[in-house]
Design a protein around this nucleic acid. Structure first.
Length: 279
DNA sequence: ACGCCCACCTGGAGGC
DNA sequence: TGCCTCCAGGTGGGCG
């Protein structure tokens, strides 16, 4: 499911229900996510208060008051859902509600993940950056320090297609299949272009496009294709603004272009693009 | 070190 | 209806 905008949307939805609240009970209905849930997970988090929720790349970082960070990744199909006090008790669990947090005010937060590509890790806060999942991650695209020159430097010498380079979280984080396609369309770059040729003005354009598409999607609550929902249950709406993603055969949205959106497969993932507007 | 392929898992859509 | 194939917002391990 989730790329940066969806994860950020989930983060914002969780903050009012979790930050400043104590986890009174944690229930593991299924422990075999992509990696098994932490050993003695419940006893380690029950009684802890969540002081903040941060995001790094596509990971949520729940900062606990004992110096530990609960790292959550939503994989492809993960969602977090909120249930208020009276309905939480009555509302039956759904098929893929794997982890349940009961908070001190009666609200319940459920982690639901049909495909179980998600994960949860418990790591000392000071050790998060050194954890193998975080080592080598590229810069945050919404960080003010990230600019065309920074992207160009990371693409130098890369022989892969620019599309594949954008999906590589070592290049930059947070961009996945949807936003890579959309950013390449907005910047007029062919997904097949060799990454090392994206330098100078092209890199500046691409960074602007990445920022624009991510920020607009966050404004819309992310993209709801199959699984993504905001914690409060609202859908995302950015999918209604896709120019090319999943639009094979539709006319290119550029006025007067007239070409049809094409699909190709790169690194095992679908790429959608306009062969005329993107060079 | 880099770049590609595949596996991990479930469910929805479409074809016959 | 049922069965089969293909496809899906990610990641990381193994291979050449």
């Amino acid at each position: 499911m989730p790329e940066l905008p969806e994860v950020e949307t989930v983060r914002r939805g969780l903050v009012p229900r979790m930050v400043g609240h104590r986890i009174v009970r944690l229930t593991q209905r299924r422990k075999d996510l992509r990696v098994p849930l932490p050993a003695r997970f419940a006893e380690k988090v029950e009684g802890r208060t969540i002081e903040a929720i941060d995001r790094r790349a596509k990971y949520l970082l729940l900062r606990l008051d004992d110096g530990q960070t609960l790292i959550v990744h939503l994989g492809m199909s993960g969602r977090m859902t909120l249930h208020d006090a009276p309905s939480a008790a009555e509302h039956p669990f759904e098929r893929h509600d794997h982890v349940v947090f009961d908070m001190d005010d009666g609200w319940q937060v459920r982690f639901n993940d049909a495909r179980r590509f998600g994960l949860m890790l418990l790591v000392p806060t000071e050790a998060v950056a050194e954890h193998k999942a975080f080592k080598g991650l590229g810069p945050e695209p919404l960080d003010a320090l990230f600019d065309g020159a920074a992207l160009a430097a990371r693409l130098r010498g890369k022989r892969t297609p620019i599309k594949a380079a954008l999906l590589d979280q070592k290049t930059l984080v947070g961009v996945g299949n949807i936003y890579a396609c959309e950013a390449l369309f907005l910047s007029g770059l062919s997904p097949r272009r060799s990454a090392h040729t994206v330098q100078g003005e092209r890199a500046v354009r691409l960074v602007e496009a990445i920022r624009q598409v991510l920020l607009r999607s966050i404004d819309d609550g992310g993209s709801t294709l199959r699984d993504h929902v905001q914690p409060g249950g609202e859908l995302g709406y950015f999918q209604t603004r896709f120019n090319v993603y999943d639009r094979t055969g539709a006319p290119c949205p550029t006025p007067g272009c007239g070409q049809l959106v094409k699909r190709l497969v790169q690194a095992g993932r679908s790429t959608f693009y306009c062969a005329r507007c993107q060079r």
